[in-house]
Design a protein around this nucleic acid. Structure first.
Length: 590
RNA sequence: GCGCCCGUAGCUCAGCUGGAUAGAGCAGUAGACUACGAAUCUAAAGGUCGGGGGUUCAAAUCCCUCCGGGCGCACCA
């Protein structure tokens, strides 16, 4: 219905010769709102006010001529002018019935697809395999997963990927931490030995490290006898055993992460290992990262667009001049000790994404990585020009989840070992409530997750409010069936003519908004509008259900009963679809 | 010091591509189960939109400034 109003306005503007420069006239398009308040129309637009300074006419006068032209009795019951120049549309009964029929049509998707379909690579979670997923990762997982579902629902091609940072110092430290814990299970470790072994680094702590050490000790064959002997001897060469600890720890942790994700209902199309980028293909210096640096180096200066910055040497290191592309300082690619930086690996990783033909790359990061955006922007522009492929890069920053337990903040640090795992929360609160809590707020604002509230008072969680509305619909249909009521398989306009209550009309208008909400969500990469929408829809259905009888035949005629069942079926369908997009179940009974 | 995010009802947060009387949930107050599921519904109450300037016909929304909170500013990942 929103589209009808927009189309009507657009065609009128075309008639008066404004259409061709509509986008310059109104660069933000025709704004259409869904007023919450009664008396402000079912759809309204301040477009006359926007046009006033351009046409040099009073807004109400413009509104009046728009009203005259737009009035089409088959679409609108009335169009009113209000306030400083609002156009408020009230739909015709036929428009309302048509909208409901659309929601009831099983043969068509309730979502209107986007005009331009894109090929999107959505990377999220990507937690380092140095410890189990905690509640912060959970938020990113819930967000990314829901986003991928929404993007697919509006017609985009989406691939989801988890980038495993399994190279670099942190993995060595994981191995050391595990080895140290293992030693401590066998014998006393003098402080001096511990300090020397850690080389000034901070070890990972926490139960999971001890569990890993215990597992290695208790599982025969994980270490060879020789490795075990060396690992106990501080004087033995570390190369002989440390890698083994790293390997075991990492693979077990990664298995745990995959299991957590599976339990959380989050599926990835691919897991991409950073190690693959470091692996030479045919001899020294033929790893992907080094090759990409060479390609950029070669292209810089010879590129017509001038968007490929140069690679230069300074202080014994190799740098990329990202300042040419908006970064505030140049960045190191190859350290003076000959090791590649994380940034260099990320360039190769994203180059590979672009080569696969994606035209939109979405990275979901923790908010503490925001300082990394300018250099990645520079990298993407570099690669885009180098490969001559236009590509858009967007980062969704997931703000912090701060935990509160017993009224006090819980600190979270993987290394300190003091954190609440996603698994713990899932076990106590459940998948549906956890996902809903994550998705009910904008990912851009930090959120307080009260563990006690989530655990002890879980029935107050709004997720049950929405699920209950769905269960109510199903229950109603079961009742109808047991009473032998005939429910149409294919709905026709005539089946719905008996609808006349304002509450019914309101529900149809909300149902009609579903597609619009999804389109907005997919463009803005925001999930919470959908969560709010579903809560709103559920609320209106509860209201309607409480105040209007549906099945008792003595109160009204059969036509009203059938029409209200139709309305309920449509509500149930949209609730189920919407919850599904959030990765939340829509139970038939609760 | 520089940069990013945030400050809205007692609490947790929507609204911020400028538009009508700033919204919801929770808590608290007062009510509704002989009727398709009360995990529901109804009503009232609750506000210097952090402070101050500015732009505008119109500012919670845009700009400046100050205050308060969080997070970044590596040849770590």
């Amino acid at each position: 219905m929103r589209d009808l109003a927009a189309a009507a306005i657009r065609s009128y503007m075309k008639e008066i010769g404004l259409a061709e420069d509509l986008s310059t006239l109104l660069p933000k398009g025709i704004r259409l709102e869904f007023p919450k308040k009664e008396g402000f129309g079912e759809i309204s637009t301040p477009v006359a006010m926007h046009l006033a300074p351009l046409l040099k006419l009073p807004p109400r006068k413009i509104a009046e001529s728009l009203r005259q032209e737009l009035m089409d009795a088959s679409l609108f019951q009335s169009i009113e002018i209000a306030g400083p120049g609002y156009l408020n549309f009230i739909f015709s009964e036929q428009s309302i019935r048509d909208a409901l029929l659309k929601a009831l049509d099983e043969t068509s998707d309730p979502v209107i697809p986007e005009d331009s379909k894109r090929k999107i690579l959505l990377e999220f979670v990507s937690a380092n395999p140095t410890g189990p997923l905690h509640v912060g990762h959970g938020r990113g997982a819930a967000y990314g997963d829901a986003l991928s579902r929404i993007l697919k629902a509006v017609g985009h091609e989406v691939k989801t990927e988890y980038y495993i940072n399994d190279a670099g110092n942190q993995m060595e430290m994981l191995g050391r931490s595990t080895c140290l814990a293992w030693r401590k299970l066998i014998r006393e470790v003098p402080q001096k030995e511990e300090e020397a072994f850690l080389k000034g680094g901070t070890p990972y702590k926490g139960d999971y490290i001890r569990d890993l050490a215990r597992l290695i000790l208790d599982t025969p064959g994980l270490l060879t006898e020789q490795e075990a002997r060396n690992a106990l001897d501080p004087l033995a060469p570390e190369d002989e055993y440390l890698g083994k600890f790293t390997e075991i720890a990492q693979s077990r942790i990664m298995e745990g992460i995959r299991e957590d994700l599976r339990q959380f209902g989050v599926a990835f199309d691919t897991f991409f290992s950073e190690k693959d980028l470091h692996r030479p293909s045919e001899g020294p210096g033929t790893d992907a990262i080094t090759l990409w640096i060479a390609r950029i180096r070669e292209a810089s200066g010879r590129n017509e667009k001038g968007n490929v910055p140069d690679v230069f040497e300074s202080e014994g290191a190799l740098w990329l001049r990202t300042t040419l592309l908006g970064d505030d300082k140049d960045r190191v690619l190859l350290r003076s000790d000959g090791r590649l930086t994380y940034f260099a690996a990320d360039i190769a990783y994203h180059a590979q994404k672009i080569q696969q033909g994606f035209d939109l790359l979405v990275d979901v990061w923790g908010a503490d990585h925001h300082g990394y955006i300018p250099r990645m922007n520079a990298a993407i522009r570099t690669l885009s020009d180098l490969l001559d492929r236009p590509v858009e890069f967007r980062v969704a920053l997931i703000q912090l989840v701060s935990l509160v337990r017993d009224g006090r903040p819980v600190s979270m640090s993987t290394r300190g070992g003091e954190f609440v795992t996603l698994r713990e929360v899932l076990d106590e609160v459940g998948v549906d409530a956890t996902r809903f809590s994550y998705l009910v707020r904008s990912h851009e604002s930090s959120v307080e997750f009260d563990l006690n509230k989530a655990k002890e008072r879980s029935m107050d969680n709004p997720v049950y409010y929405v699920q209950y509305a769905h269960a109510r619909v199903r229950s109603l249909l079961r009742q109808a069936q047991s009473r032998g009521v005939e429910i149409p398989v294919v709905w026709k306009s005539a089946d719905l003519e008996a609808l006349s209550e304002p509450a019914e009309r309101e529900l149809v208008r909300i149902l009609d908004r579903f597609s619009y909400v999804l389109n907005e969500a997919s463009r803005s990469l925001e999930i919470h509008p959908l969560t709010e929408y579903l809560t709103d829809l559920a609320g209106h259905y509860h209201h309607f259900y409480f105040h209007h009888r549906i099945l008792s035949q003595e109160l009204h005629d059969k036509k009203i009963m059938v029409a209200r069942i139709g309305l309920s079926v449509a509500v149930g369908r949209i609730l189920k679809t919407g919850l599904g997009l959030l990765g939340i179940s829509a139970p038939d009974v609760m």
